[in-house]
Design a binder for these strands. Structure first.
Lengths: 182, 182
DNA sequence: GTTATTCTAGAACATCTGCTAAAGAATGAG
DNA sequence: CTCATTCTTTAGCAGATGTTCTAGAATAAC
């Protein structure tokens, strides 16, 4: 019917997502997003409405292509508790040393001070809570969720990774010795 | 020798601190800080050098008058493991529902994407790590640090507080049954 | 080929940002 | 009192911010 978009939507979302993971929503400007995505401001506003719209799309992209992909890779349904262990351990082996933080954790912190937390943040946390809840008793699953978020904070803060990994291993060793859900 | 400052430094730092706890460093402007502290921009720059200087002072104020005060209240040296339990439980009973987040956790996340994490953030995390390390075996103390940070993220995200508190109680019940350091 | 429609490019807008300069007000030393 | 010193206030600067507008380029239906 008319001219088609020239850019690759997925590539654009990936680079916007990385910019937001590094700096958060507030400190990444439209100019920075222009450089990161290769798009001009006009095209960004034409395609996503406004900065929030691009963020929402990038957040959804993160949930789908980073979080869900990570779960699928390390903790598919049949992997059980060992899958959860691998998922946790993988957090300490990101090449970026926390510079690319978790967009969910970072957003929970960044928007937690405002009146309304975006529903997307809560929904994303729910994905993890559900995953843990399926493989571990309820009391333990809340602990795993908190541990997961805490590890991401500490990795981003540059905390000693081997110590974190040893802690994860010990924690799952203990979980292995208890009755679980599956 | 000359005119004295009219404002109460501690009160100014407290209100600046609260503003930063709510919004982080980046999204709190000098105008907002003027309103929060009652000072005019000129006085702020005269007293603290620049925005970073005020933030540094507010961060130190937080460590001294919020973190250390919280430890002294709930977990004095003689309180042992029960003190740590009370410390953790207190995180779920803040009246602000996470709108006033922990300045340490929030800063770790906000500055984690930049080249150099401020040393003050790491030092503040060390305070908690040391506290835990004195009352619990090393492997457990790392877990408590991660749990502590994760709880703060989840509280700020509006997560179910009774579930978090039950998790904390269960975790410390288990710790009570193990040999500890003291 | 015309035309309607949608994308892209670039300049521009009003507002907000951190910060500074200049003038007035308070203080203590001489 | 004088005066040097320091605080407070106000106004303003240069640059960055999110956003919009306009002109131009590409496409597909007719």
């Amino acid at each position: 019917m008319a001219r088609a978009c020239e850019f690759d939507q997925s590539a654009v979302l990936t680079s916007a997502m990385e910019a937001f993971r590094r700096g958060g929503f507030g400190s990444v400007s439209i100019r920075t997003l222009e450089d990161a995505t290769g798009l001009k401001a006009g095209s960004i506003y034409n395609s996503f409405g406004d900065k929030q719209g691009l963020f929402r799309a990038a957040f959804a992209h993160y949930v789908e292509h980073v979080l869900r992909a990570r779960i699928a890779e390390h903790a598919p349904p049949e992997a059980g508790l060992a899958g959860l262990r691998a998922l946790f351990v993988s957090l300490m082996h990101e090449p970026d040393d926390g510079a690319l933080g978790c967009l969910i954790t970072n957003s929970a912190v960044e928007f937690g001070g405002s009146d309304a937390q975006p529903a997307a943040v809560h929904a994303a946390l729910e994905i993890l809570a559900d995953l843990f809840g399926q493989r571990v008793p309820a009391a333990q699953s809340v602990k795993l969720l908190a541990l997961y978020q805490g590890i991401l904070v500490l990795v981003r803060a540059g905390w000693n990774k081997p110590a974190l990994e040893a802690m994860v291993q010990a924690e799952f060793d203990q979980l292995d010795g208890e009755p679980n859900v599956a």
